[in-house]
Design a binder for these strands. Structure first.
Length: 462
RNA sequence: GGCGCGGUGGCAGAGUGGUUAUGCAGCGGACUGCAACUCCGUGUACGCCGGUUCGAUUCCGACCCGCGCCUCCA
């Protein structure tokens, strides 16, 4: 039985999808005006693992992750760059797909874009206007009337009075209440716009997710996820719009990832302390970054640091060492082990990936023991277990040699390295250990570590 | 100020009312020509103070500290 922490109820609940065996999940994706940073990466990887695990447990998962490709920030950035906004969004969507692929994030089942759903967005706003939950204002915008929805604040636990009193919200003459938010924004001259009953304009920030999720998954669906900073106001507003428009409960389980921090502060656009995924991937192998993300629970805050990434690299190296030189048995031919059961036990508990990784280490230890005992057959069966459990976390799917030797060495081709290894082997055979060690040291200086074994010598990047 | 989350061994990070997390680093041993890899062994960790209990790191209360949201941000 899978249990999931639901932000709406603030409790871990047994997970029962609305339709047995089927999971309908929506995750807020990117607003595409810049490269993805590690915070985006965390959400991408977290929900990728969740999807993989739900499928592993036999659910048919329909995973929708949107792209918001029209918005103030996009228009501003395109303007700064002096380009058509669609050129910017096309470029960023392409970059995002590259980042995802490198992090081994599987594509969602559907990836709807806001600009392809303008008709649905307008239809939803019309429904809200006609039922009195929204109103066109004098400035040409259409606003959601927050006070028309008594449940407003149920997700973020905020009281409307506090929000208004806080006065941090955008004070707008045109709004009836300061907490009201825009569903439709009137176009300024020269801006991209779509026709609507309220004049030319474009959607406000939150409505696109309500329209797309409802269109793709129905009025009510199982899981809605996203980053921690979307909880308010974005998700709160989505609930208000959707429940008022459809008259049904919007989402059963709300899931929010924890923040990535840098020096104890949240990594964020506004603080400017963010590292883009591609920046990080210049310094660390993608799987190491993924391992780092998966090694803590998806809801906990996690500090990004060079040291943490380095440690993740050392640890992942150890796991691949267990697989190196082994041909894993066919996973389908290896029956369920107690490791599989333990893995499911911990993952069933709100996707405890940290616990799951400890199972991976237990399996690796078992492989190494079998190998040491010369029990190749058992080792290859255990390797199959390691690879199949790794797959659920999106780890350990590479050929170990590819992992160890990624990129080769500066100035040395794999061929050069092999030649030096052979020269060292000859020296060792002649018991010229000074020469053998000289060669090993020379390679080490160039970032190559040698591992001897009874089958010969293999190398890896330091 | 309001709402919420958290403080676990040198570090990272799970978990539990009484029994081993796991990983990295360290130390001792085995293996090795020497290393690396691997294996074996090795650490009286649960912010502070009360309470409940036969027993609390785990439950309850207060306190201290850190973080997040309350405004665009994943």
């Amino acid at each position: 039985m899978i249990r999931i922490y639901n932000t709406l109820t603030k409790e871990k609940e047994e997970f029962h999808p609305l339709e047995p065996g089927k999971v309908r999940m929506y995750v807020c994706g990117m607003t595409v005006y810049d490269f993805c940073h590690l915070g985006h990466g965390r959400v991408l990887v977290a929900f990728d693992v969740i999807t993989r695990y739900l499928r592993h447990r036999g659910y048919d998962v329909h995973y929708v992750r949107n792209i918001t490709d029209i918005d103030d920030k996009i228009l501003r950035r395109a303007d700064e760059n002096g380009e058509v906004y669609t050129d910017l969004t096309d470029r960023m969507i392409h970059a995002m797909h590259e980042d995802e692929a490198r992090l081994a994030v599987l594509p969602p089942s559907e990836e709807p874009r806001a600009t392809a759903f303008i008709d649905d967005i307008i239809a939803m706003i019309q429904r809200l206007v006609s039922t009195g939950h929204a109103y066109p204002a004098d400035n040409g915008d259409v606003y959601f009337a927050v006070e028309s929805f008594p449940d407003y604040g149920k997700l973020s636990r905020k009281k409307l009075d506090d929000l208004v009193a806080g006065a941090r919200v955008d004070v707008q003459e045109a709004k009836r209440s300061p907490a009201d938010f825009a569903l439709w924004k009137a176009a300024k001259s020269g801006e991209v716009s779509w026709q609507s009953p309220w004049g030319d304009g474009r959607p406000g920030w939150h409505i696109e997710c309500s329209a797309m999720s409802t269109k793709c998954l129905g009025d009510t669906f199982d899981i809605h996820g996203g980053g921690p900073d979307l909880l308010f106001p974005h998700h709160e507003n989505e609930i208000a719009q959707s429940e008022c428009a459809t008259g049904h409960k919007f989402v059963h389980t709300w899931m929010h990832a924890g923040a990535i921090r840098v020096n104890k502060e949240k990594m964020s656009k506004s603080l400017g302390n963010f590292f883009t995924i591609r920046e990080i991937l210049e310094k660390y192998p993608a799987e190491v970054v993924r391992y780092f993300l998966v090694s803590s629970h998806y809801r906990s805050q996690v500090d990004y640091s060079e040291e943490s990434l380095a440690e993740a690299g050392r640890t992942l190296t150890k796991l691949y060492h267990a697989l190196r030189g082994l041909i894993p048995a066919k996973a389908s031919e290896v029956e369920e082990t107690e490791h599989d059961r333990r893995f499911e036990d911990v993952m069933d508990d709100d996707f405890n990936t940290a616990g799951a990784i400890s199972v991976l280490h237990a399996v690796a230890g078992e492989i190494n023991q079998h190998r040491r005992d010369g029990n190749e057959d058992e080792a290859s069966r255990a390797a199959a277990v390691l690879v199949r459990l790794g797959a659920v976390l999106g780890l350990l799917q590479q050929d170990p040699e590819a992992f160890f030797q990624v990129g080769g060495s500066e100035g040395l081709s794999p061929k050069d390295i092999e030649a030096m290894i052979q020269a060292r082997a000859d020296a060792r055979k002649a018991r010229d250990f000074a020469e053998a060690d000289r060669i090993r040291d020379e390679l080490l200086e160039k970032g190559i570590i040698l591992d001897d074994s009874c089958e010969g010598t293999s190398w890896r990047k330091a």
